[in-house]
Design a protein around this nucleic acid. Structure first.
Lengths: 163, 163
DNA sequence: TCCAATTATCTTGACGTCAAGATATTCGGA
DNA sequence: TCCGAATATCTTGACGTCAAGATAATTGGA
């Protein structure tokens, strides 16, 4: 019996009027996310990164040459607010991993570019990160993996438009 | 094509050496968690609570009469550090939802008890919260719900001991 | 041409969390 | 009985995030 099941049992005893089946599913998803996040953060720390800085560098890296995007582009890719993105860029700039470059056509804007050091760092980090993700999903059989991925994708579609 | 699929396509183009299937599954789980968390926080705010305070009150409520637990007990139930729990209790105490009571047998410890106001608040909030969870899982058919819950449970067992 | 609306980014102040360590009490072996 | 180890909670300082709003530049209609 897992942690979430115990919680459901307690609710059933104290508030039998509640149907807590959705709480079970959402609770398991939440705890799973917490465990996975912890593991991923620990691995990224070995590269001097956290999830926040990794996500920004990864977004620039996978955008392809010349590895430059505006803060607004980065914002659209990461589910955070503009103030958070400003702070993330500030930290990465201090570490010498990205640089702010004047936008050639719009003086309101700016381009965030990977430095050579930033490129080397993210390429190393993403290789290790992907290996870690394989490790973290190794507990699932191939069939379970496919089924879970399909269900998550299906569920996610309720929150994100299909394009 | 969802947001995560676009990310995988980009990695495939830029780093074809990486097998990003696990990134897809973990990315979908992460985004789903983010969407669900946002919805749940918004609903709890209507009761003057956030996820943190709700979890503490809910733990006390479902523990049953006399609705008192030590900070250590609360800690074991919530995946946070001791400093975080101290802060949560402080905030709830300020709001008059819980009270600190001297532990009768161990002067190092203390009991956190629901006040009448705290009891009324959590009973109202959990009813609304459960209704909201039903809404948030309504996109899934009964079969999908069962399959997803089973797979999450199975995956979670890789991180939490069975008892 | 002008200026109000829009767009893009940054600033500010508050909040929740964590890691590390401080403080106080209890436990248990010599 | 004594005292070092263990236990329980709290404190401190740093960090990442958000909401709201400030600043600056661009756009488009009159």
């Amino acid at each position: 019996m897992d942690h979430v099941t115990r919680i459901l049992d307690q609710w059933h005893r104290e508030r039998p009027d509640l149907d807590v089946a959705p709480m079970g599913l959402l609770g398991r998803l939440g705890r799973l996310h917490a465990h996975l996040s912890r593991e991923i953060e620990a691995e990224l720390a070995a590269h001097g990164l956290n999830r926040a800085s990794f996500d920004v560098l990864a977004t620039l890296r996978r955008a392809g040459h010349p590895h430059r995007l505006s803060p607004g582009d980065l914002l659209a890719a990461t589910m955070v607010t503009s103030g958070t993105m400003t702070n993330r860029i500030d930290q990465l700039e201090k570490q010498g991993l990205v640089e702010r470059i004047a936008h050639p056509e719009d003086r309101r804007s700016v381009l965030i570019g990977l430095t050579d050091k930033g490129f080397a760092t993210i390429d190393r980090a993403v290789t290790a990160h992907v290996a870690n993700q394989h490790r973290l999903t190794a507990a699932l059989t191939a069939a379970e993996f496919e089924a879970l991925d399909a269900l998550l994708s299906r569920y996610l579609s309720a929150f994100e438009e299909k394009g």
